[in-house]
Amino acid sequence: MIRIHLASVFVTDQTKALDFYTRVLGLEPRQDIDMGDGNRWLTVGNPGDPSMELLLEPAGHPAVAPFREALVEDGIPAAQLAVDDLEAEHERLVGLGATFVQPPTDFGPVVVAVIDDTVGNLIQLAQMKG
C-alpha cells in the first residue's frame, strides 16, 4: 500500500519556520540534519503520530520565489492542516501574533481559515464538521 509519508513547503528561513510550525502551530519537531551550505533536512510532524512529516524545505531554487509570490498574491494556500476547533485556534493564534488572511469561514461541511506562516506561505486551517 502506498501512503503519504512526507510533504513539503518551501520556507524562506528554516529557523523562523521551525519556530512557527512548532511553537505557534503546535506541531512536533522531528528531523534536523545539517545538509551543508546552511541548509537543513528539517521536518515537523503531528504530535504523538510518527506516520507523516512535513518538510520545511529551503526556498533557494530560483523558480520558488516567483511561483510562491503568485500563489500568495491570489491568496492560495500551500498546504492544509486540520484542527478540531477552528474558532478556538483562531483566538489562540491571534493571541500569539499570527496573521490571518482569511478568518474562520463556514462552507457547510468544513470551516476554513488561512494563516500567514511568516516564511513565505499561506496555510489553510480546516475543521471538518460532523
Binding site: D74, Q102, T105, G108
Partner: peptide, 14 residues
C-alpha cells in the same frame, strides 16, 4: 478584504 482564493471558494460554496 477577500483574496481571489476566498472569492473562488465562496462562489463555489455559497
Amino acid at each position: 478584504h477577500q483574496s481571489l482564493f476566498e472569492i473562488t471558494t465562496r462562489l463555489l460554496g455559497d
